[in-house]
Amino acid sequence: MTSKTNKKLVTTTTTTITAATVSTSVSQQFASQLEGFIESDEEETAVPASAQSLGIRAQKKLLSKISSKSVVKVFIDDTSSHVLDNLHKLIRAYSDSKKEADKLLKSIIKTIVKLGILYKNNLFNEYELKLIEDFRSRFHSLSKAIVTFYEVDFTFDRVFLTRMCKECQDLTHKIISTHLTQKSHIRIDYIFNYLSNLQFIEYVFNSNSTATRAIIKEIVQDMNSLMDAGLL
């Protein structure tokens, strides 16, 4: 093989790898790291030693082995994944810290996956299922408010947003109270406290920021799609 051919092959291979990397979303990349932050506190699922508990552990191990894109699709649909990617952009722009944006997104994905495992294994009792429905209702109201605040001028209400975030936060704590350890409670507080921070909220809904508005526009479009599909 000539040196010219070798050079062409290397260039083609590099381009292919780069394209594949770019096409993978941030949330998909983090999902590929689930082995590290799922199995590191695998003991969090508080179920008795049984075939069921062994099955749950096996699921966690399986999640750490399959591809990043597959992991995301187990519990997070493509549209929701796109919302998370844009949330990552907002946090990175707000904090001027990729590390901070990465930390929050990883915490969100880990929480979603853990709740998904519990739900898919029918580990929530009747009371907890009612709490989940209550959470869905409040989160739906929160989502509608976010859409309205973006689409309709002079409707922004920071007090309403912080109150709804707090209610969703409290419900999440109740839902996981008998299933996960304090580590998960701390993670949930970190997520909601960050997103309900007044400075962050005002930054997100700053109508004078062209860059922020562009990201919010995409989030709102995806949220509308999720609500139309009955998923939000």
Rank of each mutant, 00 (worst) to 15 (best):
Tyr190Phe: 13
Leu171Phe: 06
Ile188Glu: 07
Thr24Tyr: 00
His185Gln: 11
Asp134Val: 06
Leu161Ile: 12
Glu100Thr: 13
Ile175Arg: 03
Asn86Met: 02
Met164Gly: 07
Val47Glu: 01
Lys166Asn: 12
Ser143Lys: 03
Ser67Met: 00
Val74Gln: 14
Ala229Met: 10
Lys120Ile: 07
Tyr194Glu: 08
Lys98Thr: 15
Leu34Asp: 00
Leu129Gly: 06
Thr15Pro: 05
Ser80Phe: 14
Leu232Cys: 06
Leu198His: 12
Arg92Met: 13
Asp170Glu: 14
Ile38Ser: 05
Met227Ala: 11
Val74Ile: 09
Leu129Val: 09
Thr12Arg: 11
Leu90Asn: 01
Glu100His: 11
Ser80Gln: 13
Asp78Glu: 13
Tyr150Phe: 15
Glu128Arg: 05
Ile175Ala: 04
Lys73Asn: 12
Phe149Val: 01
Gly36Ile: 05
Thr111Asn: 01
Arg57Asp: 05
Leu54Arg: 12
Ser68Val: 04
Asp189Asn: 10
Tyr127Ala: 13
His88Lys: 01
Phe200Tyr: 10
Arg187Leu: 04
Arg92Phe: 04
Thr21Met: 14
Ala58Trp: 06
Gln199Cys: 10
Ala19Met: 12
Lys73Ala: 12
Glu100Tyr: 07
Ser95Thr: 15
Ser143Asp: 01
Ser141Ile: 06
Thr148Val: 13
Leu142Tyr: 08
Glu151Asp: 15
His82Cys: 09
Ile56Asp: 02
Ile215Val: 15
Asp189Thr: 03
Leu90Pro: 01
Glu39Tyr: 10
Phe192Ala: 08
Asp78Gly: 00
Lys89Asp: 15
Asn197Ile: 02
Ile219Leu: 02
Ser184Glu: 09
Gln59Asn: 11
Asn125Pro: 05
Asp102Leu: 01
Leu123His: 07
Asp96Lys: 15
Lys8Pro: 06
Leu105His: 05
Ser207Lys: 15
Gln182Arg: 11
Tyr194His: 09
Phe192Leu: 03
Tyr194Pro: 03
Val83His: 02
Phe75Lys: 02
Arg187Ala: 07
Leu34Met: 14
Val220Trp: 00
Asp77Trp: 05
Thr24Glu: 03
Arg158Ala: 14
Thr12Asn: 11
Gln28Pro: 00
Thr5Asp: 13
Ser68Arg: 06
Thr148Gln: 13
Tyr190Pro: 00
Thr172Pro: 04
Asn125Leu: 03
Pro48Gln: 04
Phe205Met: 02
Met223Thr: 07
Val26Phe: 08
Val22Ala: 13
Gln59Glu: 15
Ile132Val: 12
Phe139Lys: 07
Met164Asn: 10
Thr21Gln: 14
Ala214Trp: 00
Gln29His: 15
Ser50Thr: 08
Thr12Leu: 12
Ile146Met: 08
Asp96Val: 12
Tyr127Pro: 04
Ser40Val: 10
Asn197Cys: 04
Lys114Phe: 10
Phe149Ala: 04
Lys61Asp: 11
Ser196Gln: 14
Lys89Ala: 12
Leu115Val: 06
Ile38Cys: 06
Thr148Ser: 09
Ser209Arg: 02
Gln199Ile: 01
His179Pro: 00
Ile176Leu: 09
Val74Tyr: 09
Glu151Thr: 10
Thr155Gly: 01
Lys69Ala: 11
Ala31Arg: 01
Ser50Lys: 08
Lys114Ile: 12
Arg187His: 04
Ile38Met: 10
Asp102Val: 09
Asp85Cys: 03
Lys69Val: 14
Phe154His: 12
Pro48Asp: 08
Thr18Asn: 14
